[in-house]
């Protein structure tokens, strides 16, 4: 019994600590949101004398939205999941690169004075020219040349992926016929259909040296499943009919805010669900979505 009581006491203490911690976090989040952001579009109307109070403050800043939304909800439970990795950095094998790309302390760098301000001098011009080969598909301009201050010059043509000509002269071929000329790419090769598994693959060049650790260069990648490849290649506009653009006006009292061509369907359309997931606003959705991206990329390391 004593043991059970002690356990209860410990649990109570933990709860108290959690509540205190939660309150502290709320305070910190408030401090991180110095000013309430306002609904950009509604703010425009605020400039009018009869403007109304913004309803939705955080379209453009989902993170602020999240924090303030939480605040207004009096610390409602967060719908967001924490990142799966505690480490802020990816894990790397001992990097041979560290010896090649030295860390420079400020005193090893040189500046050109421009009044009171600094001007970078290219690191490449002070002895750190990249030892890495230029990729064959990279423009052959010597991006890392030791020229110091760039001057107006045209790099000499060299082989490789591109042959820089440098000049676009008056009368030279310029784009003029490019209106609506896009077409969809259809693969000449049937899709490989990898069955939806996240299998590692071997690619060409650097890809052949694939590794299972995240952050190990271009050695991994996400295996594209058939569905994804299909989505990449299919014409996303094939089922759409063009609708004539019209400038958006404020919604009228009738709620007729859709183009005429689809306005008829709106009355027939089922009402969207009133409750949706745990995200109560677009802003929260964006914040959660970003966090999910961070979380998920840690969850799906390179193959």
């Amino acid at each position: 019994m004593d043991e059970a009581e002690k356990r209860r006491e410990r649990l109570k203490a933990m709860r108290r600590e959690a509540v205190a911690c939660s309150n502290k976090m709320e305070m910190e989040m408030e401090m991180e949101t110095p000013t309430a952001l306002s609904n950009p579009l509604l703010l425009e109307t605020l400039e009018d004398p009869g403007g109304s109070v913004p309803r939705f403050d955080f379209y453009t800043d989902p993170m602020s939205a999240f924090s303030t939304n939480k605040r207004t909800k009096n610390a409602a439970p967060s719908p967001f999941t924490p990142p799966r990795t505690a480490s802020p950095r990816p894990r790397f094998p001992s990097s041979p690169f560290s010896a090649i790309c030295p860390r420079l302390s400020p005193d090893t760098r040189q500046y050109q004075a421009h009044g009171i301000h600094q001007s970078y001098q290219s690191l490449s011009s002070i002895g750190t020219a990249s030892p890495f080969p230029v990729h064959p598909r990279m423009p052959s301009g010597d991006w890392n040349n030791a020229g110091g201050t760039p001057s107006y010059h045209v790099p000499p043509p060299s082989g490789g992926w591109s042959t820089p000509t440098g000049f676009v002269r008056e009368g030279a071929p310029t784009f003029s016929s490019g209106r609506g000329r896009g077409k969809f790419y259809h693969s000449p090769i049937p899709m490989s259909g990898q069955g939806g598994s996240l299998r590692p693959f071997s690619g060409r060049g650097r890809l052949s040296n694939h590794s299972s650790s995240p952050g190990s260069g271009q050695s991994g990648g996400w295996v594209l499943r058939e569905k994804e490849i299909k989505s990449m290649l299919e014409d996303p506009w094939k089922d759409l009919k063009p609708v004539v653009w019209r400038r958006l006006d404020p919604p009228d009292s009738m709620g007729h805010w859709l183009p005429k061509s689809i306005r008829k369907t709106v009355d027939k359309a089922p009402n969207p669900p009133k409750k949706f997931s745990s995200h109560s606003s677009l802003a929260e959705y964006l914040a959660a979505s970003f966090n999910e991206a961070v979380d998920s990329t840690n969850k799906f390391p390179s193959t």
Binding site: P90, F92, C101, D142, W143, H153, F167, V168, E170
Partner: peptide, 21 residues
């Protein structure tokens, strides 16, 4: 542009880069 050409100026690294080690 007739004199200089219209290719963008070349990349130059200006700051130390991250070193995971």
């Amino acid at each position: 542009i007739l004199t200089r050409g219209s290719k963008p100026f070349e990349f130059e690294r200006t700051l130390p880069c991250y070193d995971p080690s």
